[in-house]
Design a protein around this nucleic acid. Structure first.
Lengths: 247, 247
DNA sequence: AAAATTTGTCTATTGATATAGACAATTATA
DNA sequence: TATAATTGTCTATATCAATAGACAAATTTT
């Protein structure tokens, strides 16, 4: 006897929307509502639980806020996959390494590139004079078609002239660097933080307002310590976890 | 560090009075509030939980309703000792014997009766052929108006035709059996188990989901070993304990 | 292109929840 | 006996929870 109706109790001191939200969570855990599929429409849920549609909406709103569900106007409300991509971070970590088996399709998309004077922060990171010319690359990482990272990287424009075309062609930073004679590089430093996604990240990573992003700021260097790249990467916390290995 | 503040959460979908009531229950279970002693006065509780006195009163009112507390004007609010009914089980135990002094009012209610073919389990218990006609009786035991047992009993329909009406009249199995010339009977075997109450028991015994029931499966026989009754009885574990004597 | 489906937003109403204050009723204590 | 402590009752007010209905906006289906 599993999967009782567990119907809703009124005047119990627990609001109906909270009871329904808990019930939906249970249904997901049990597998009654499968991941990446749509929930029954709100009217159907309202009927099932014997409450008003707006009450169901309150329950759904709470679960959307918690990152469990995702509502899309006109389409439906979907159960998000709760397993996050585990992204390894270590001294020798490459972008796509260590993700085998977690996603069948993994790629990096170049969104924008520009040559600009370096800000102080970037100049310091790359060991250049402030205002030196740098190449800025905006990229988005995707796994199975879903955005999982959003990076802004800077290279010394003198040393790596034209790297943006190589990256656009190959889709790989590692492969592009090899064209410049760099076969190996290390992660010199990484600073990790978290914040709410800003408007740009919300759009690029396809997130809902209020979503959280993990932010890494890293400096990659050659084995002899020469700075190659300064990069800030934002990961949607609801889809990605960072697995730290030896730095 | 026992007895964390476990403070109250607002706008969680769970009303403050419900959270406080649960907290008081926890404090009782842990022993912070001892049985038969007074709770801190309402104003003190209100300050402790950071709410209005009336909110505390709502919580107390709910627990008084549940029979956990008793409030006395001018004196205080007291934790009731929730002594469980001690139900003796032995070879010669009768339903209402041995309960003297524990409950002032004790009765058995016939919920349903039917004549059916015996299942294999019942047939074996009664020493009949499978499919023989048996009388099934569904009864509820009550002590001081509170349900303390829920039994399903089977009799040989040929031997005890019409026993259901006798039980409905007298309210006693023992008295009814006397009409069939049985003045004494013994408990031949008893199997004891426990499980969560199913939906039907929750309703019949007035329990909350998740409640536990003690289950006895017994065969009663005449002194010369002739099977009379096969019975499964469910006892709410929170209200009843079974005291085993010599079988 | 049109219709149907589904989520989003708005207004309105009712009852439950929570706070606040005042005072009564009962009991224990000085 | 007076006083203090404690629960009980009442009124009032503000916010949350739940229901109800209508329509907009986006998407899918026909």
């Amino acid at each position: 006897m599993i999967g009782q109706p567990s119907s809703i109790e009124r005047r119990s001191g627990v609001s109906l929307w909270r009871q329904i939200a808990d019930q939906i969570l249970r249904s997901i855990a049990v597998g009654d509502f499968a991941e990446n599929t749509a929930l029954p429409p709100e009217v159907a849920l309202a009927e099932r639980y014997g409450v008003n549609r707006h009450t169901v909406r309150s329950a759904i709103a709470a679960l959307v806020q918690d990152g469990v569900l995702r509502a899309e106007q006109g389409r439906g409300t979907f159960v998000l996959s709760r397993k996050r991509l585990s992204y390894p971070i270590g001294a020798r970590t490459r972008f796509s390494e260590g993700l085998q088996g977690q996603a069948s399709e993994r790629r990096s998309v170049l969104l924008e590139s520009a040559v600009e004077p370096a800000s102080r922060r970037v100049a310091e990171g790359l060991g250049l004079a402030k205002g030196s010319s740098v190449i800025r690359l905006e990229t988005r990482g995707e796994a199975d078609g879903q955005p999982v990272s959003r990076a802004t990287g800077w290279f010394d424009a003198k040393r790596f002239a034209g790297i943006e075309t190589a990256i656009a062609e190959t889709g790989s930073v590692t492969a592009s660097l090899q064209r410049f004679g760099i076969s190996d590089y290390l992660r010199q430093s990484t600073v990790l933080s978290a914040r709410h996604a800003d408007a740009a990240d919300l759009a690029d990573l396809d997130l809902q307002p209020g979503a959280i992003v993990l932010v890494t700021v890293a400096v990659n260097v050659t084995p002899d310590g020469q700075p190659i790249q300064f990069a800030e990467t934002r990961f949607p916390a609801e889809r990605v976890e960072l697995k730290l290995s030896a730095l």
